[in-house]
Amino acid sequence: MTSADANLIDIIQFLFMGIQRGCIYALAAMGFNMIYNATGIINFAQGEFVVLGGLMMVTLTMALHLPMPLAFILTVFFVVGAGILMERLTINPVKQPTVLRLIIITIAVSIIIKGAAMIFWGKGSHYMRHFSSAEPLDFHGATILPQTLWIIGILLVVVIAYGFFFNFTMTGKCMRACAINRDAARLAGIDDRKMVMLSFALSAGIGAVAGIIITPVIQMDYARGAMLGLKGFGAAVLGGLGNSAGAVAAGILLGVLEALGAGYISSHYMDAIALVILLFVLFIRPSGIFGSSEAMRLKEF
């Protein structure tokens, strides 16, 4: 093998690693956007939804031995329930829902969910078996896990379903209307409070999916939420807050850049690399790579 071949194999390997992480950032970023569009706030409990999804899936498959597809559906329902509960109990009752107030509430909820997960699932990391075989596949000398293919596939399915929902269903269009102008939407007879609840439910669902598909690869523990949330938030900002196509592209980009940075600079600075890129983009294009600065000006936050 020549050294050029070896270099190429390394790059392919880093790309696989980056895409795998990027898909999770993309899903987390989509969750952020969903709630941002409906309420104008950043939900800091987004990372916790991912953790809840992962841990619940571990319990259902590894302890209760349910079949994968059933456990998958039950887990998503469970986390969606948690999302709805969160909105009904903490966001909906707030008398004067200012942006800052709501954001602080989501931080509080994230701490509560983290604590509850710690009590229920303990402090250790949890191991889950892969969806299909755990044997890596060869790809021109590099290796890829079947689980990575699952992750990419499921991200695609979620993105397509997401696009369909917002463009071709009445409810989806109502949600978009709320996102564009909440007062006008209300005047047109759209129940905006219900749309907020729905946005929490959907964003929790997306979080759960991210947690379920990544757990076999990374081992989930109760404290993972903050970092996953932060990276997802980074991807959402990078892609332009509220822009979901941008979020997916930015999430994968962030993952790949991190992987290349880890490989060619140092894995020690992997997290820093992502955040430095984020800062850099914010200095040059505050609306994100794919965001429109005009839309940004209309937003409260």
Binding site: F14, M17, V217, I218, A259, S266
Partner: peptide, 11 residues
Amino acid sequence: TYNPTDTDMTA
């Protein structure tokens, strides 16, 4: 070196 929060050691 790697961070305690890292989830992938491929690199």
